[in-house]
Design a protein around this nucleic acid. Structure first.
Lengths: 249, 249
DNA sequence: CTCGATATTTAGTGCATCCTAAATTGTCCG
DNA sequence: CGGACAATTTAGGATGCACTAAATATCGAG
């Protein structure tokens, strides 16, 4: 019981935890400025909030070094993510809500909907395990299959996936290139690096030289390849030993 | 254009406007302390908020005298009420959401849902004109049929209605009494007075002496009787000349 | 190993919203 | 008409969360 009350997180708090969770998952660590970028707030604001969240047991903060979610923080983040994805799924599948607005709508509703409503929607949907973008929906007790990534945008740095399809109408040049060199059935891409938040990615396709692509990552569908590289291969969230590129010392 | 931006009302602001609207409709006026009672905040807080809302053109405030919604304020209140009622209807009818929790859920969602989502839900429901409690749902352009009241709780002071049915399991004594003396088919009740917020009511049934009842008003279904008494009989919201018992001078 | 570029934190503020306690005003009764 | 009492407003704070500007720490280059 590090966290105080059961359902008393403010909207900003939920957003911070969610963003930190996502950064940790994708980059292995979350720095002040990355969080600031993700939430579109000033770095100094992040420092302040981080201090408070650390005091409340949602994360560990080593000044000038970075943050790590605690179990409580991860649980809170996952609950918010579950809400978000259930909502997106419901809005899309049941209400036929327009694609381009589903995300923002869910972003606002996720803070207002009760757990009860969310479970009600989940039931109506037949307890889906992934949202319309293919992202996994955490279970009620906070378990996610972290290995499921459906687009390049969801890949963690250092991980490899099998490219499945490139579906987009924008940026036809790069897409043609990708289709040419990479879409031999089952081609594999490895995410070498990524710009701070949702910027361009650096990819290695097969054994070729790494290339830098603009961010159409969300258009490239992939299927995960079990990478032995970075130690852990856990599917749950519990004891996840601070992934690949967190600097020790 | 008295109100500044289109969709930039905070949650507290929407709640204040909604409460003031409801008080104005039911009592003909809204005093600081009634608003405070309705929102469970200190009277001093109401004064402060009222000052701000008046400055922004949502209401007129005569210090020590009370508040009146402006057209802008009424429009904002009605939009929130529309959201609330559409949400309640959807939760109840489509999701089978438990009765006792619909209200609170809608209360939170109404501040987060976009107009677009609300219209989407309304369409899915076939554009209902009243919510599960029988309360009228304002239209998109802010029109309500103020004459529709389905329970005694919705009756304005001074108005008369025909009692239709008493449906409740609690307070059997009073109910039996009501059934005895008042439920001759088509008996009429007039609301003489009501306690500050949702407290007991004073009713006159037919020509009998007024009686004071505890608040089971929500259990007594009524059907409106057009009362000629208080001047206006408008069905819209626009030029509604400050109902019955607002003290002039 | 020192220096500078960059990341991070501290300091000092602002705004929205709430609170309590202390004036102030309005009303109504004798 | 003059209080007394209730309703209301003012004064003075507190909290959450954001911001800017000014320190300060870290890290990679030379």
């Amino acid at each position: 019981m590090t966290a105080p009350s059961p359902r008393a997180l403010t909207e900003p708090v939920e957003d911070y935890l969610k963003a930190i969770y996502e950064l940790e998952r994708r980059n292995g660590a979350a720095s002040t400025s990355e969080v600031a970028l993700a939430l579109a707030v000033a770095p100094a604001s992040v420092t302040g909030m981080v201090r408070r969240l650390a005091a409340q047991g949602y994360l560990d903060h080593v000044p000038y070094r970075g943050v790590q979610l605690t179990a409580a923080g991860r649980a809170a983040a996952l609950r918010t993510i579950r809400r978000h994805r259930i909502l997106e799924t419901y809005l899309t599948q049941v209400l036929g809500y327009p694609w381009d607005r589903v995300h923002d709508e869910a972003e606002r509703l996720e803070h207002a909907a009760s757990d009860e409503l969310i479970e009600c929607l989940a039931a109506a949907l037949g307890h889906p395990t992934s949202d319309p973008h293919g992202a996994p929906i955490p279970t009620v007790d906070g378990l996610v299959d972290e290995r499921v990534h459906r687009t390049l945008a969801d890949l963690a740095v250092g991980h490899t996936a099998r490219m499945v399809r490139v579906a987009s109408d924008k940026d036809p040049d790069l897409l043609r290139y990708l289709a040419d060199i990479a879409l031999r059935p089952g081609a594999e891409v490895t995410l070498v690096a990524r710009a701070p938040y949702d910027g361009p990615l650096t990819l290695r396709i097969g054994e070729a030289q790494p290339i830098v692509g603009p961010n159409l990552a969300a258009q490239v569908l992939v299927e995960p390849v079990l990478t032995p590289a970075p130690a852990s291969a856990a599917s749950a969230t519990e004891p996840k030993p601070a992934a690949s590129r967190a600097r020790r010392r």
